[in-house]
Design a protein around this nucleic acid. Structure first.
Length: 110
DNA sequence: CCTGTGACATAAG
DNA sequence: CCTTATGCCACAG
């Protein structure tokens, strides 16, 4: 099949595979895509993902578990609410017990 | 081809 | 803890 998808599309596919109540980092996705140093592209790709219901962008955070992209969601705490709604505790825009909720596509899909 | 950009990552002060 | 700076890469214009 056409494995040569656009970088964005790959990001979407990986994001779609993020299990409920789990989160991952931009760098992890980038690494899985074979472009570990393109983490920024992942975030940028999520710009369009935010408009896609199939892509839970709120489950993607930075490596520190910080909700760096919350400003791109509607309201001021929508992203946090979505995560907490899935059982992920968030305090001050930072995910608690990140390792416990972290989902590494490289580790899970590799 | 060149420039700007971006929801990162890492380092340094 | 904070801000700056640099690298890094893909995409848009």
């Amino acid at each position: 099949m056409e494995d040569n998808r656009n970088f964005f599309e790959k990001v979407y596919e990986v994001a779609k595979q993020i299990p409920y109540g789990r989160v991952t980092s931009y760098g992890a996705i980038a690494k899985y895509l074979g472009a570990a140093r393109s983490a920024r592209m992942v975030g940028w790709a999520m710009n369009g993902a935010g408009k896609m219901e199939d892509v839970p962008a709120h489950r993607v955070v930075n490596k520190a578990g910080l909700l760096t992209g919350k400003h791109h969601f509607e309201g001021t705490n929508l992203m946090q609410q979505l995560l907490e709604s899935e059982g992920v505790k968030v305090v001050d825009n930072q995910i608690q017990d990140l390792e416990k909720h972290f989902w590494d596509p490289w580790k899970e899909l590799h």
